[in-house]
């Protein structure tokens, strides 16, 4: 349709002997939420710092709203709102003073200032707290203030580096809703995240990044679709003496079935990764019946992004964050 709003071409960056980015390329369409999903140290922050003109890459190209961030950084800065991974509020200042500060740094004309400040406060739900010193605000409120500061100049592109890092579940939801509201207003959002659920909930497009390389690109649904596997979860009858034994026996038997790729015990549940659940279900039930193992329940599900990550990078998703939501 339209020109991509963010374009990254073969970007590379090394810190000494550590390769942070190993030639990544991607494009983000206007008005979408694009997610860069990967574990700690994958290269997410390095990527967005290059987009925000804060570090220079060793090689490659990056464009924001048609402006090359390397040749015209000043122009690029005015088109981007960058909300870093760390909280960057000033404990001595009130939210109102923060917004006034950033309004001036982004050269918002005096005539528009009041309006923009009010809009930004309202968008992140900070109305009523505008005169309280930031040191007295909660972590979640500070994050929302950070977000508001990045919106004051109405940039076409917002970069969010792990916006829900360290927030509790309710505040995360709240922050997600504000991000979705921004998208409704037409802003393009580039989001780094360490959380599968966040990526699934928010992102239209995803890039899975690992060791400075893009492992897969596509919408969450596409990525899951490319992974043909489905999961059958079998639970043996609960609370019986032989429950554990049954589970182990069933695991061995199921693993021998041709359509079962992998069998994994997850507590009292046996997770079977199959190619086609419609064909697999009867076979699994048959196996259980012939072994005289009573079942409590059986269910099947499509793979989540956890499985997608495992599939495309060949390793389990190692999470570094503090909470899982």
């Amino acid at each position: 349709m339209s020109e991509p709003v963010v374009r990254i071409e073969n970007l590379s960056k090394a810190y000494g002997i550590v390769t942070a980015l190993d030639g990544i390329s991607l494009e983000v369409k206007g008005g979408k939420i694009f997610g860069l999903l990967g574990p700690n140290g994958a290269g997410k922050t390095t990527t967005v710092k290059i987009l925000a003109t804060l570090i220079r890459p060793d090689g490659g190209k990056a464009e924001v709203a048609g402006v090359d961030v390397l040749t015209d950084p000043a122009k690029a800065r005015s088109l981007v709102g960058y909300i870093s991974q760390e909280l960057t509020v000033d404990p001595y200042l009130t939210p109102l003073e923060h917004l006034r500060y950033y309004a001036d740094l982004y050269h918002v004309p005096a005539a528009l200032r009041q309006l923009r400040i009010r809009d930004a406060l309202a968008l992140v739900g900070l109305a009523g707290l505008e005169d309280r010193r930031a040191r007295h605000l909660s972590g979640g409120t500070k994050k929302k203030l950070d977000l508001a500061c990045g919106l004051i100049h109405r940039p076409p592109v917002i970069i969010l580096d792990e916006p829900s890092l360290g927030l509790d579940v309710e505040v995360r939801r709240d922050v997600w809703n504000h991000i979705l509201r921004l998208k409704e207003e037409g802003t393009t959002i580039f989001l780094c995240t360490n959380y599968m659920d966040e990526a699934e909930r928010l992102c239209d497009e995803l890039a899975i990044i690992d060791h400075g390389k893009i492992a897969a690109l596509g919408s969450p649904a596409e990525l899951k679709g490319r992974l043909k596997r489905e999961i059958v979860s079998v639970e043996v009858a609960r609370g019986k003496e032989a429950s554990g034994e049954w589970l182990a026996t069933l695991e061995t038997a199921a693993a021998r079935l041709s359509m079962v790729r992998k069998a994994v015990k997850d507590g009292a549940i046996l997770k079977l990764y199959v190619d086609n659940n419609e064909a697999a279900l009867p076979k699994i039930l048959e196996a259980a019946a012939s072994l005289k193992i009573p079942l409590e329940s059986i269910a099947y599900s499509r793979p989540g992004l956890d499985e997608v990550f495992l599939h495309f990078t060949g390793r389990a998703f190692a999470r570094g964050g503090e909470n899982d939501g």
Partner: peptide, 13 residues
């Protein structure tokens, strides 16, 4: 050290 300056530098100043 705390990242405030970097945030500032992302502004067109």
């Amino acid at each position: 050290e705390n990242g405030f300056l970097l945030r500032l530098m992302s502004a067109p100043i």
